[in-house]
Design a protein around this nucleic acid. Structure first.
Lengths: 136, 136
DNA sequence: CTATGTGCAAATCCTTTGCATCAAC
DNA sequence: GTTGATGCAAAGGATTTGCACATAG
């Protein structure tokens, strides 16, 4: 196991993560620079990787655009608005897989240890905008 | 709507896709080159994008490694083995989201139009190898 | 003092794109 | 002949890495 020392930069990154919602590495970089003008993007990436390897944060991968990071490490799922691109948390207690054969997992290719679910759609704000446009 | 002409390369890509399982663009490129030694990787990517935009194939994004492509366009989900890296189809009829508040969607951030689920774990082959190693 | 962290820049990986030419229609 | 497709090479975005120096323990 690797030993980890304290670093001011890493602390700043953790704090920023706690107060922002699913930021990208670059968004974090821009914010950390306010406190550490000479911080490098490499340092941000390295720390995000360290933190996600320790399980302190979660790395989220989306089909479009760069990875995002989440200080919520509880298993939870995400909703991406195709219209505005924002990412929301889904407050889902659990997922039930309804297996095709009804045998409840006998047909699984292996032992499932983790799950990532992304739902795509239109967020409530964009839905409201749409209906306004139609009304106008 | 964009007009699409026939192309031998695209046909070859479709055939290869039909007979392989979740290949990456590069894996397809290597195989297409057997038929078209001068084909370029750019052509492979362009065709994969055309096909996925037409809905003839599906593009799959994973947190590790390059995108993969799937000729199965029915909504279905995937299992990734963390040990060997292989990707399997999950034969799931449907997903039930068990909402935290029990209000069945009232708390959703928007209208869900599509879902991508990736399960991570250890595939049956790797599980078998593990228990063999322990036994030895 | 030793090991880890940092800043910087270069490198890497995956994917897209500009452009001249070629093929489909 | 017009438009879309190709091959090639260069560009692009995101992320990682090598290295010399700084800092925590």
């Amino acid at each position: 196991m690797r030993r980890i020392k304290f670093s001011r930069q890493r602390e700043a990154i953790k704090e920023l993560l706690a107060e922002s919602s699913h930021p990208t590495a670059d968004e974090i970089y821009i914010k950390v620079r306010e406190q550490f003008p000479n911080v490098s993007l490499g340092t941000v990436y390295r720390n995000l990787n360290v933190l996600s390897e320790c399980g302190e944060i979660q790395k989220l991968t989306f089909p479009e655009g760069p990875d995002r990071f989440d200080c919520n490490v509880m298993p939870h799922y995400h909703f991406v608005c195709r219209s505005c691109g924002r990412v929301f948390d889904l407050h889902v207690r659990g997922l039930k897989l309804d297996m095709e054969d009804g045998t409840d997992g006998a047909e699984l290719p292996g032992r499932i240890e983790a799950q990532a679910l992304i739902c795509y759609g239109t967020c409530n704000d964009c839905l409201a905008d749409e209906s306004q446009d139609i009304g106008a």
